[in-house]
Design a protein around this nucleic acid. Sequence first.
DNA 1: TTCAATAGTATTGTATACAATTTAATTGCC
DNA 2: GGCAATTAAATTGTATACAATACTATTGAA
Lengths: 157, 157
Amino acid sequence: MAKVPPVLLDEQLCFSIYSASKKFNHFYQSALAPFGLTYPQYIALLALWEDAPLTVHQLGDRLELDSGTLTPLLKRLEKQGWVTRVRSRTDERQVLIHLTSMATAKRDEVYQRIGQCQTMLGMSDHEIQTLMTDLITVKNQLDHVSDNQLIDKQTTH
Amino acid sequence: MAKVPPVLLDEQLCFSIYSASKKFNHFYQSALAPFGLTYPQYIALLALWEDAPLTVHQLGDRLELDSGTLTPLLKRLEKQGWVTRVRSRTDERQVLIHLTSMATAKRDEVYQRIGQCQTMLGMSDHEIQTLMTDLITVKNQLDHVSDNQLIDKQTTH
DNA sequence: TTCAATAGTATTGTATACAATTTAATTGCC
DNA sequence: GGCAATTAAATTGTATACAATACTATTGAA
């Protein structure tokens, strides 16, 4: 094999994103401790506060999570009193996720708490916008590289 | 409670990072399929290829993972023949993670494969650099908000 | 209409993550 | 030297993630 450039951990964009994601997770876990919510539970509620009820499938599209992740997560949210899971009458395959009155009542408390905690980060709106725009570009590029392209390369080594 | 601005999922930097991180994970999982490596296993090997052997603790510092994650991960890497786990003789508390000859032999193959797959993403070095710089800023800010600050706010709602 | 194909959710199995605890080894202080 | 405090890994328990499979309800084509 010809000389191959090394892959250095600190130069990997994936690793920057991976560790930033873990840090955000920890940050929100602490911020949401008064509500006993994990980060994935919190984003599920964000989606539902925008547009409830949603089917498991719709919520999965929104959060990019499948039923294998969402079913147990939603059962935990149900047990803690945030949502109810109701079989749809018009299509018995679907399960509709509704917010409870507690979830509706607590919405603004959570919004406010998140707002306060985000202020502590001291990031300007412009900074955030720039980063998000760039991240969307990365995500699009990742989406456009199909598994087939990656699999085809398997035989070359 | 006074009027509180809504928290919209699509405006959250955390959610952009969270979903980009999952996409990268999937991308590398596919790219590394010929080697049977998961993404966290891959970054562990990257760290070791740069500087083996490392103790579990040192590897944890590098990857920002604790022994609860690393111990089972390293056992799997050991079972698959990439590393060996050896109690240090000078300090019996430590476990040194060594690369096997197979891991050393396959290093350039993995480097090359990663290089090929990253090319498919079509991102310029400049794009990547900019993003990484911004992400480091975010990570620093997340690090500098202590748990104490977040916990103090608990009583305000 | 009937039944094969599809769609929506749940389940199973594997692999992270991480807090909290446990266990064993080492260090520091007297 | 003796022992409390500390350190390093491993373990335990809970919560994601996701591929693959199973199960049930619906749809669609003959």
